[in-house]
Design a binder for these strands. Structure first.
Lengths: 214, 214
DNA sequence: CTTGCAAACGGAACCTTGTTCCGGATATAT
DNA sequence: ATATATCCGGAACAAGGTTCCGTTTGCAAG
């Protein structure tokens, strides 16, 4: 899983800090708590949305709030860390699926995985739109990780003649995300079905791989 | 608390404002305070966004918080009231502009008015996406009031041959709103300029008023 | 195995913000 | 002028984010 520590310093080259090697000592208990916190936060966010109280997360992780704030100075830092963690997991699933399935099937499975990811993100949309600058880099990270992952799957499936070749990863991600948005009423089950339909749409017309309809 | 009160008054016509509240006496001081609160909230929301503290609004209106909650039982009620108020003001500006200016000019001026309105709504987007049911009727109200207003202006300008006739009010509202969204980086000045460009685009190709293509 | 200490821990305390409560003020009908 | 339903103000309460600080602990040097 993610080896990236949350205090992943975005070193802007401020040479003010005292000499610390990037790998300064991170005590084992600290690492353990960070892991527990990420796991707890993931679970709580999925259940109660990203606006769940910090105390609840701390309790579930079996630590005190002080420990939360030691590793995630702001509440939003925790949210960002969990989000990046999940994006990474989703992106990393792509090569794994590609190895275990036929290209078309791998694509379909990954899209479902993606739907699950989006569905679980209740309340995140509000955070993104909140104007809080802490979140403004998230969409970029989102694209940076997921687009290449999907693109690889898409190209493999297209090369195998299993899907048409004229769709862009971004279109697909956007379409699936909007289908999965809770604002569309239908539950997660409907989202999965509609996205499956979308993927079937990709398969249609792929029978003649050389058919480039200008 | 689960008791479902059976006094479901047919609060029908939620699209239009409840104009005559003559059923029960509304004391003059109360009306005055409500007005002051709406004005203060409008100013504060424009400055600090819709998440400004209730106390700040109360102070600016010169009343106690108790008075705020007497008239707006929930914070979100105040936000909704201010929003509807501003939507009404924006919509009502259309006929006034139409009376004082040439059709094309009235359209251009109203679009600028609309941009100002959208620009001032910092943080409202987040509220809309928050999942709070208190806000879910707002977009409908938005459309219900603004679309006819713009449509009238548009038709008048088209009839006068000052703009092309093949654009829908909704498209224009949506486009202008997205140009004015702060997420697009450029300040309000840029938004005004881009929307002016958009309106100029409407004028282009309108030189032959009788040209009803199709 | 000690020992020293920086790092980490926990959770009470503090601050801000939404909301409720209620004693006192007051507009308005009679 | 009086009665009273309505309204007002702001203290008090609840909840959540964040800080503070005394205590504990991992770990490496001796």
């Amino acid at each position: 899983m993610g080896e990236k520590t949350p205090d992943d310093k975005t070193d802007q080259g401020d040479g003010l800090e005292p000499r610390d090697r990037a790998d300064r000592h991170v005590r084992a208990d600290a690492r353990r708590n960070i892991d527990a916190l990420l796991r707890a936060a993931m679970a709580v966010f999925a259940t109660s949305g990203v606006e769940a109280p910090v105390r609840e997360i701390a309790e579930r992780a079996g630590v005190g709030v002080g420990t939360v704030y030691r590793h995630f100075p702001q509440r939003s830092d925790l949210i960002v860390a969990v989000f990046r963690n999940e994006v990474d997991a989703c992106a990393d699933a792509a090569p794994i699926l590609a190895r275990k399935h036929e290209p078309g099937e791998a694509l379909a499975l990954w899209m479902q995985r993606y739907v699950d990811f989006v569905t679980a993100k209740r309340g995140l949309a509000a955070a993104l739109y909140s104007g809080n600058p802490a979140f403004e880099t998230l969409p970029a990270y989102f694209n940076q990780r997921l687009r290449p992952a999907l693109q690889t799957l898409l190209e493999a499936a297209a090369a195998a003649g299993e899907v048409r070749a004229d769709i862009e990863p971004d279109d697909l991600l956007g379409a699936a995300a909007s289908l999965a948005m809770p604002s569309h009423g239908g539950g997660p089950a409907q989202a999965r079905r509609m996205v499956a339909l979308l993927v079937d749409g990709l398969r249609y017309g792929a029978s003649s791989p050389a058919d480039t309809r200008s």
